[in-house]
Design a protein around this nucleic acid. Structure first.
Lengths: 341, 341
DNA sequence: CTGAAAGCGCTAACAC
DNA sequence: GTGTTAGCGCTTTCAG
């Protein structure tokens, strides 16, 4: 044990002594509880300020709320998640809640969820969770829970916030068809429980049918690994019936496809159009100029935080919130180049 | 309060009852404490397994360690941080410690640190903190603390892990000079307490002197905002004495400069060479082909976690660890194009 | 080797 | 309006 640990921290008792009131009075002031006079409040607040008191969250956790919520991401590399977090933070700013984040891949997600529960967090936001709806329902029974990007029908026991991914797929195909592309392939994610991805694929298929391109429907699913994406992209671009457009499930994959296509000597967008998803900050760079779907991560995060707090404060009924995507056209799909000035 | 909160969780008492031993015995088994028979241990572990018991971190926190450490990042958009986190996670995997993350800009950093202390985390790793050394020393007195990317001389009271940023600067200039560039400008960060950046600048200056390019030394400092970077890049590239090479303090800035340069009709690397820093995953894309400095984020994270745990377990003496950067050459600085196959 | 007992700092009834 | 009191689940002496 280090020497540091032995230092005594300022507790509610120190404040009470300093302000010359009972420690219960201090607790009430801190919690904004009912039944404290202004005089007392002022006096206590002065002492809190003077001593630099902050409540011990762990101790709070043993009796009631911690005012901490946990946010779990599947990885930290996708800049889209930063947008979601920005939305969550914005929503939390006006409340007394704080958030901490955790990063967990599929295999470690359950244990991270458990340890956040063990830390007595008041609620959880799961972003792009690959856990089953059943599992999440079980957790939802124990803790307020909101899932972003997990939209099976008829989910009960926890709230969800989602982009309308079917529309995403439709928008992309509609756009590409309008630009004159026909052989449109979707490069999708090979996931355990990819409900978001499934909807996106469904939208792609539906709109392809709609455009009379039934025979051109082609979906290739690969993992998140850069290596596998590269191999798949090369295979697709090297095949005799090469597509003339590729819709990638997320921007990062699209950027990799651009890279592979350029290495193969293909011109974008004349030989090949590429569309991504999430409209991350990299899309706008001239060297990428990537057409993408904007699903407003900030909105998703904002709504998730709102729903979670409602849950924590007592709502029982399940709610599902949907945001609507829009397409942002850039050069990678033959949209007339727009000046950045 | 939601209904969920009222559900009773499995406690040490339930386990004790099930295993028919005292609850103190269970505590000892869980903590791997000295003085429990194998028979008792087996019995208790069976009950723990059977009941699915996990210790309540908050309750633990009130008496001893939580086995949770907090990691604070300045933002979530730089993929370099993901590498650092990967290193930390790898180091923690073989221990009983877990980590949670927090994201804080300069103005919210102090309060996030405080709330992690309030949550009784056993230690803190600060990545790219912009807080003063004094402030961090104060915190270091209360909690084990390791800072990554904060290398003022003579720091006491907390450990640091750093890339040798002076060498970074030297490597870049040396490389560019070798490639025939002379008018090398550094696009740096305008930070409150940019000690990492200052070292990098120092290396740049030193090597410029060394190469007899004293008169070409030019450092431009801008904030992290995309808008400001853009404006600065345009100004630099539009000026009459445009540099023939730009060293950017981080890859993201370099990518933006590539974008602006292309929009301005400049060819890379013939009109302009660009070098980044951190060797993030985007450097390798054909459309960027960005020469960059690799400072091994994973190594930084690994060492930071190691030092932190040593501190938690009792080390008093301050330690500083340094890793050595290397340059990864790509097309943006005229290195012969390498095939990706 | 095992168990009993004393809190850690706080919240929330409840009593004054 | 304000103070008293009883725990929350656990770790950690200290007796047995």
């Amino acid at each position: 044990m280090t020497k540091q640990q032995k230092q005594k921290r300022i507790t509610i008792l120190d404040v009470a002594r300093d302000a010359d009131v009972s420690f219960a009075a201090v607790s009430k002031v801190v919690r904004n509880a009912y039944g404290v006079s202004d005089a007392l409040r002022t006096k206590v607040n002065a002492s809190i300020e003077k001593l630099g008191y902050t409540p011990n969250t762990a101790a709070r956790a043993m009796r009631g709320r911690t005012f901490v919520i946990g946010v779990i991401f599947p990885d930290m590399r996708n800049p889209f998640f930063a947008d979601i977090l920005a939305g969550i933070s914005a929503a939390l700013e006006r409340t007394s809640y704080q958030s901490v984040q955790g990063i967990a891949r599929h295999s470690t997600e359950a244990s991270l969820i458990q340890s956040m529960i063990d830390m007595q967090m008041d609620g959880l936001i799961l972003v792009g969770s690959t856990a089953s709806a059943d599992f999440l329902s079980t957790i939802g029974q124990k803790k307020p829970l909101v899932a972003i990007g997990h939209h099976l029908p008829d989910i009960k026991g926890f709230d969800t916030v989602n982009n309308d991914d079917e529309i995403s797929g439709r928008l992309v195909v509609g756009h590409l068809v309008a630009q004159g592309y026909r052989k449109i392939l979707m490069l999708s994610l090979d996931t355990e429980n990819g409900t978001v991805i499934e909807r996106r694929e469904a939208g792609y298929r539906a709109e392809m049918e709609n455009a009379g391109l039934h025979d051109e429907i082609r979906v290739v699913r690969v993992s998140q690994s850069l290596r596998e994406i590269q191999v798949a992209a090369k295979a697709i671009l090297g095949s005799p019936d090469r597509p003339d457009a590729i819709f990638c499930w997320t921007d990062f994959v699209a950027l990799e496809v651009i890279s592979v296509a350029q290495n193969a000597g293909l011109a974008i967008p004349s030989d090949l159009a590429i569309v991504g998803h999430d409209n991350t900050i990299y899309c706008d760079f001239r060297q990428n100029s990537l057409t993408s779907i904007d699903q407003s991560g900030e909105q998703l995060g904002l709504q998730a935080a709102r729903l979670l707090i409602e849950r924590i404060e007592g709502r029982q009924k399940t709610e599902h919130f949907t945001v609507h995507p829009r397409l942002v056209g850039r050069r990678s799909s033959a949209v007339a180049s727009k000046s950045h000035e």
